Amino acid sequence: MLTEISRRRDFPSLTAMTYLNTAAESIPPQCVGDALQRYYADKIRGMKGREQHFAALEACRDVSARLLGMQPAEVAFCSCSSEAYNLLASALALGSADEVVVTDLDFPAGATPWLRARPAPSVQLWRAREGALQVDDLAPLLSEDTRLVQVSLVSFYNGHRIDWMPFLHTVRRLAPRALISADITQAFGRVELECAGADIVISSTHKWTLGVHGGCIVGVPAAGAARLTTRAGGWLHLENAFASDRFERAVPKSGAASFAVGMPSFAALYALNASLRYLEGVGIAAIAAHANPLTARVESGLRALGLQPLCAWQPRNPTGIVAFRHERSAEIHAALEREAVHVMHNAGRIRIAVHGYNTSADIDRVLASLAAALA
């Protein structure tokens, strides 16, 4: 991932393109394709393959826990982050007297369940200033009635990264009964995590973790398991799913295990087990050390072209995302695509994402292509 030899071996498709869109879709390493083939080989054995399926699940749980700094029993899997957040809403069962804080830099999956709930809690919006969330703006939104503060460790929108410890201390001081939920989708696999003290962490699997669709990691520290046990129906998450009293009551497992309500998405877990072990072998610290200077070059290069990043580069809290807006964004994006330079474009915003498989030549090429498009 970090050398030309390993890049060609593990990511052969990158020889034909400059790919800077990992914040939307990653390029999985070759080992993920091999893992999916193993899943298929196990699946065609029918019920005899189930032993391998569940072994892969537990192996994935182990490596996920290591990279999250948790115990395996504190980790479970859903099909996507939207499912995880709706299950979180079921666990909290908030009422109209309760308050939830979300940010305007959150992805919809983490922000909208509280708007759809009935009865709906009062939703307070923590707004960014100049692309960054300031703790001083959070404090007035917190109270004894705050039951949940939902944030993204790294914003999908502009790459802003929460200054975690001041945020954590502010919530614990001013909203002592609130739970903290952290969406780590745009961080996990790319930056060294700093979210200790979160009551629940949630991550999709098809972005920086280099997995595929159909998976979501949920981490719930054991200390808060009782408060974060879902009220969903299902079977895999129940203690008495096939007991004699199963039509009289449904007794859930507590905490993270209660989020795994049905048959696991085994293909996604085979892939995630392979991709996380690949990342673990390379080392998240090594990825950050390689990719952070490249991301900083993107930010400074945009400014040199007269483009204003939506969030200033933070050397103390670096991420893999730089974004900007432009009135000719669709035209610029089309010009980059013609040069096989792939970035994200949405509603006037262009987002550039740098992972460990990117190179200095990739940055040279995207900046040169942007300069040509602007001209």
Score class of each variant (00 low, 15 high):
Ala250Gln: 14
Gly301Thr: 08
Val220Thr: 09
Arg325Ile: 03
Cys78Thr: 15
Val218Ile: 14
Ile332Arg: 03
Ser6Trp: 01
Leu179Thr: 10
Pro252Trp: 06
Val322Glu: 02
Ala111Asn: 03
Ala368Gly: 10
Arg38Met: 11
Leu168Glu: 10
Pro252Val: 10
Ser96Ile: 05
Arg173Met: 03
Leu68Met: 15
Thr205Ser: 12
Glu239Ala: 14
Ala368Asn: 12
Gly255Tyr: 11
Ala65Arg: 12
Arg338Phe: 01
Glu299Ser: 15
Ala271Arg: 05
Leu105Trp: 00
Gly159Gln: 08
Ala271Glu: 05
Ala375Pro: 07
Trp164Ile: 04
Gly46Ile: 02
Ala268Tyr: 07
Ala73His: 14
Ala267Lys: 14
Phe54Thr: 11
Glu83Cys: 01
Ala56Ile: 03
Ala76His: 06
Gly69Pro: 02
Gly214Ala: 06
Ser64Pro: 03
Glu339Trp: 01
Ala347Val: 09
Leu148Gly: 01
Ala375His: 14
Glu130Ile: 01
Ile332Leu: 15
Pro108Glu: 10
Leu294Arg: 06
Arg365Trp: 03
Val191Gly: 04
Leu294Ala: 08
Cys311His: 12
Leu336Met: 13
Asn346Phe: 12
Arg277Asn: 15
Leu133Gly: 06
Glu299Asp: 15
Ile184Ala: 06
Leu20Lys: 06
Ser26Met: 07
Gln71Ala: 14
Leu236Asp: 01
Ser265Met: 04
Arg45Asp: 01
Phe259Ala: 08
Ala368Thr: 09
His213Glu: 15
Asp106Glu: 13
Ser122Met: 11
Leu276Ile: 07
Ala117Phe: 00
Ser13Lys: 10
Ala59Cys: 04
Ala353Gln: 12
Asn292Leu: 01
Thr319Gly: 02
Arg61Met: 11
Gly69Glu: 04
Asn292Gly: 00
Glu58Arg: 08
Val75Thr: 07
Arg328Phe: 00
Thr209Gln: 13
Glu339Leu: 12
Val102Met: 05
Glu327Val: 11
Leu141Asp: 00
Arg349Tyr: 08
